[in-house]
Nucleic acid binder design. Structure first.
Length: 561
RNA sequence: UGGGUCAUGGUGUAAUGGUAACACAGAAGUUUUUGGUACUUUUAUUCAGGGUUCGAGUCCUUGUGACCCAACCA
């Protein structure tokens, strides 16, 4: 686990949450810590949730505590078990094991009892006003709210009414239970917030047992309290809820969990809003929640990101209270850094150009050794077939090269990686003038590892022997959006990148790549990191491009344009 | 003349009254049979004004700006 350990150097700086925890531990306020990750099961988890997961689990790990996974399932109409399963998978895939997997719905009984306690104290009442009336009565941030007739109902009557609500005697929306707090509070959340609403809906866990469901504010803090969560960490937009969170716990006299807030993650060139992500899926802009262009955890997994890279990313972005936008390049750095060490190198030619070695005997094949990963010699070597007809990348040949182009061009020489130096003698063209093949001669004494040719070439390119090459589908992904902050657009979908996915139906791969399993990761030498997609079959392997290699030449080309 | 949160290089995050640093990104270079990796060098930062102090990114004050809050969502 890449999470920090507490035996680090003394001067290692702490983030604001670590400071709070260390102070709480030092003062004896707590002798252990318990955090929780509380997703609502109404969608798949995205990279922003990954930040929260790494934070909550990471903090617990650092201070010898634990973390619960608790589903905030208080709204039966939007929540589904499909999402519950996906979320559990994602948390485990990231590398964290919850101390307990719990549900806010487990506490519906207790929450109901506590609501009655509040009513008995005269701190809650059943309100028959419409949502419009309530909004009206609440006033505005600049004008105080006004009380309605229901606010003065006696506890006895409220108790009876609340029981009738629970018993299903009223239709949806007929009335609500509201806390009786302060209608003139500058904090709108304290102006008699809703505690319960009526929904005759089937719940994914409690079935039809309940027709009244607690609101977030009545469920969350108490759930924390029941579990004895010490540090309840959430995002900034919940700051105004904290006063209410504390009020509920105080009125009930239960375990005083405390809420702390941090700034959620924003990633450039993407959206992290469940609503928007759901739209992308439902309207078919992407194929699924785990379409590799999505910023969901499951999509990153399918695309070829490792859990280690995402945890490293979470560590590097840090945590604070100010709004932030993280550049995609940091995430890409993290996955390249990880895969550079782990991924075996393989040759693949995505856009083939045929090369004929005119001085190489027809029918001859020799096997040349090449390294599996220069970063890790323990991964050994493999053999590559070499013969008269080869494929190279179209990009690696130019008839009229610009300055500093050191790949193949007429009359020029280049090294075929782990093989021989070749010289371009002539080109074949079709009627339209496109180069269809390149004729070269090779230098027999330039064989890699036994080069006595004395020749020096600048360029090294990858290649494949035509006879042994096998076909594969390769999916090239690019950013889904063309603008840095799609969410700020009038219509974020109008900024979708039309080239976010390019499918290469007929790419060539080396034989060593033909038997792979979904999820396996490779570096296609000089091209990038690729991951075997679950769509892969034995007859037709499918690879997803996780990320390209850093390409300073491409940058150079773009600059000169 | 509602309340709240936050302001440090392009982007993030540190510096806890004592030399503004680290990473990513950018630029230049060395090495290299991946124009990758590694390594070296380098550009660039405290929102503004006032105050306290020997000394302020940090404390006080006044502004300015951004974001959040008036769902029977979480």
């Amino acid at each position: 686990m890449s999470t920090n350990n507490n035996n680090n150097a003394v001067n290692e700086s702490l983030n604001f949450l670590e400071e709070i925890i260390e102070a709480d531990l030092a003062s004896g306020k707590f002798d252990r810590i318990l955090t929780r990750f509380p997703p609502e099961p109404n969608g798949y988890l995205h990279i922003g949730h990954a930040k929260s997961i790494c934070l909550n689990f990471g903090l617990a790990l650092k201070y010898g505590g634990k973390t619960n996974l608790r589903f905030d399932d208080t709204n039966p109409v939007t929540e589904e078990t499909e999402y519950v399963d996906g979320i559990i998978d994602d948390v485990r895939w990231l590398g964290f094991e919850p101390a307990q997997i719990l549900y806010a719905s487990d506490y519906f009984g207790q929450l109901y009892e506590w609501a009655k306690v509040l009513i008995e104290k005269g701190k809650a009442y059943v309100d028959f006003s419409t949502p419009e009336e309530v909004a009206e009565q609440k006033g505005s941030p600049t004008t105080p709210g006004v009380a309605n007739q229901y606010r003065d109902t006696t506890p006895e009557e409220n108790l009876a009414l609340f029981e009738r609500m629970k018993n299903g005697e009223f239709p949806d929306g007929h009335c609500t239970l509201r806390a009786k707090i302060d209608l003139s509070s500058p904090n709108m959340h304290m102006r008699d917030p809703y505690l319960y609403r009526i929904k005759h809906a089937h719940h994914h866990r409690t079935g039809d047992k309940w027709c009244i469901y607690p609101m977030y504010d009545w469920a969350h803090g108490q759930s924390d309290s029941i579990e004895q969560i010490t540090h309840s960490i959430c995002t900034l937009e919940f700051i105004p809820h904290r006063e209410l969170y504390d009020w509920c716990i105080r009125e009930l006299g239960v375990f005083p969990s405390k809420q702390y807030e941090f700034a959620r993650l924003s990633l450039s060139y993407t959206v992290t809003s469940k609503r928007k992500l759901k739209q992308l899926v439902e309207e078919g802009h992407v194929s699924s929640w785990d379409d590799p262009r999505m910023p969901t955890i499951s999509a990153f997994r399918r695309r070829g990101y490792t859990p280690e890279s995402i945890r490293e990313f979470a560590n590097r972005i840090g945590v604070a209270k100010r709004d932030n936008v993280i550049e995609m390049s940091l995430l890409e750095f993290c996955i390249r850094e990880d895969l550079n060490k782990k991924a075996l190198r393989r040759f693949a030619v995505l856009h083939p150009l045929k090369v004929v070695i005119t001085n190489y005997p027809e029918g001859k094949t020799e096997w040349l050794e090449t390294e599996n990963n220069p970063e890790d010699p323990t991964t050994g070597t493999r053999e590559l077939a070499f013969s008269r007809e080869l494929y190279i990348e179209q990009d690696d040949f130019m008839e009229n090269p610009p300055p500093k182009y050191f790949r193949l061009s007429p009359g020029g020489m280049v090294r075929l990686k782990s093989a021989f130096i070749i010289r371009c003698e002539s080109v074949e063209k079709d009627d339209a003038g496109n180069v269809t093949a390149v004729h070269c001669t090779y230098v027999p004494e330039s064989r890699s590892g036994q080069d006595i040719s004395g020749l020096k070439v600048q360029g090294v390119i990858h290649w494949l022997s035509v006879a042994q090459a096998q076909k594969a589908e390769v999916r090239l992904y690019d950013r889904l959006f063309q603008v840095e902050d799609p969410a700020a657009e009038e219509d974020f979908k109008a900024t979708i990148n039309p080239d976010s996915l390019k499918v290469i139906e007929n790419a060539w791969i080396e034989p060593a790549l033909s038997k792979t399993e979904a999820g396996e990761k490779f570096q296609f030498t000089r091209l990038g990191y690729f991951c075997v997609d679950p769509d892969s079959t034995e007859e037709r392997p499918v690879f997803n491009r996780t990320v390209t290699l850093k390409d300073t030449w491409q940058k150079e080309v773009k600059k000169s344009r």
